[in-house]
Nucleic acid binder design. Structure first.
Lengths: 219, 219
DNA sequence: TATAAAAATGACCGGCTAGTCATAATAATT
DNA sequence: AATTATTATGACTAGCCGGTCATTTTTATA
């Protein structure tokens, strides 16, 4: 939790501060990110960071929470029951994700980089919690689909859920591996993750949906 | 490449040296791994490392090459054409992988940890090469299956290949997330990655094959 | 055994990090 | 205007790291 001092900052200074650290954590993993380099870049004293936050982890945790909250504003209102099948719901999540990415590029970059922190020892605990939560969400979604007879019953929900989770991560990884997106460059230029690649992303999502449909839908 | 001095070492000393570093790189990512801590653990001087190798990267690269070569001895002789379909071949790779794991636990742990080095900045180049090679292998396999009419034609080989690659990584990740395997503990105890979990692994592989069959096989 | 070649050593270097804290500058209150 | 509370500062600490190299120890040769 930020200290009171941080909340009393003038909004534009708070934003400058926040953005600089979002950028750093979007470019480097938690342990590789350097507070020292960010404060020098910002032109403020290092001590200031510790006027606002208890330590590096406190700052990082705050950014995660804020980023997740903002993204939730984009996708939180989507309800599975408003869609005829899971895959249209799944696609809608990506469509709203693109909007979030366009309007909050830095936070989007930051959140995408989060998955790279699996093995940053300093935040193992934090990360494991997030992972478990996410995996559980996917598992629950799969369970619902099985319950209403849409997904296959011969594979455990745990496996289908985890498979789905990994497949959704693979979409981004594929765009990265194929050179369609280049976060490092986008961050430098202040552009969204999927800048000018929104259609490529959604086409890839559609391909993955085609595969996943065949994989998980009840025959 | 190791220096001449390294090859002249007595076999048991060379093995002790190699094993200690395999262990370190199996527990930590490249940048987090500490030569200093390994040499103190080995009871040798830090300068010795630089009598054997040019630098940290040279040592790491050597271990990767050696590990890959040993594993190739286990799976290299398997030919797709010796199996009636891709999935039996796929399963055979895992069966031989288990044997490799049993007989070379440290190298197995080391190779499994490799994928965590995606973002270690010091070996970005090395890692990207390995990734590209691996992805290409999967893509080529998929192309062959498409050519003989076994895999679907409506999804690009690139996507199917990448999907397959990610799915195979997901198998290990799932066992990890579900707590079936615990590399950190296994390494401490000198046990293989899949110690007493060989059956769990192969059952998971079978589940994934069931899913992947439905996903990629031509209808 | 004396000499020469090879190998092992560890103190030391420069560079980096997160975090601290007495001091100074600024803002708010009286 | 004077006093008090708040905020900003940056030199400093302790702890890491990879890598170096003059020196010593060990091994091989003559």
């Amino acid at each position: 939790m930020p200290k009171a001092t941080f909340n009393k900052l003038k909004p534009d200074k708070r934003k400058q501060f926040t953005d600089a650290f979002l950028r750093e954590f979007a470019l480097h993993s938690y342990d590789e990110a350097s507070l020292t380099s960010v404060v020098s870049e910002l032109g403020i004293a290092k001590g200031s960071v510790y006027q606002y936050f208890n330590d590096k982890l406190d700052l990082f945790t705050f950014l995660v929470g804020e980023g997740a909250a903002v993204k939730a504003n984009y996708i939180g209102h989507l309800k599975r029951t408003d869609f005829p099948d899971f895959w249209l719901y799944f696609r809608a999540l990506y469509e709203r994700g693109v909007k979030f990415d366009l309007e909050n590029p830095l936070q989007s970059h930051f959140l995408h980089k989060l998955v790279d922190n699996i093995n940053s020892p300093s935040i193992q605990h934090l990360y494991k919690n997030m992972l478990d939560q996410t995996v559980t969400v996917f598992e629950k979604m799969v369970e619902s689909e099985i319950a209403i007879g849409k997904f296959r019953r011969d594979i455990p929900a745990k496996t289908q859920g985890f498979f789905l989770y990994k497949a959704s991560l693979a979409i981004n990884d594929q765009l990265l591996a194929l050179g369609e997106i280049d976060p490092k460059k986008s961050i430098e230029k202040g552009l969204p993750v999927f800048h000018k690649k929104e259609e490529v992303l959604l086409r890839t999502v559609d391909q993955y949906i085609e595969i996943l449909k065949a994989a998980l839908d009840k025959r």
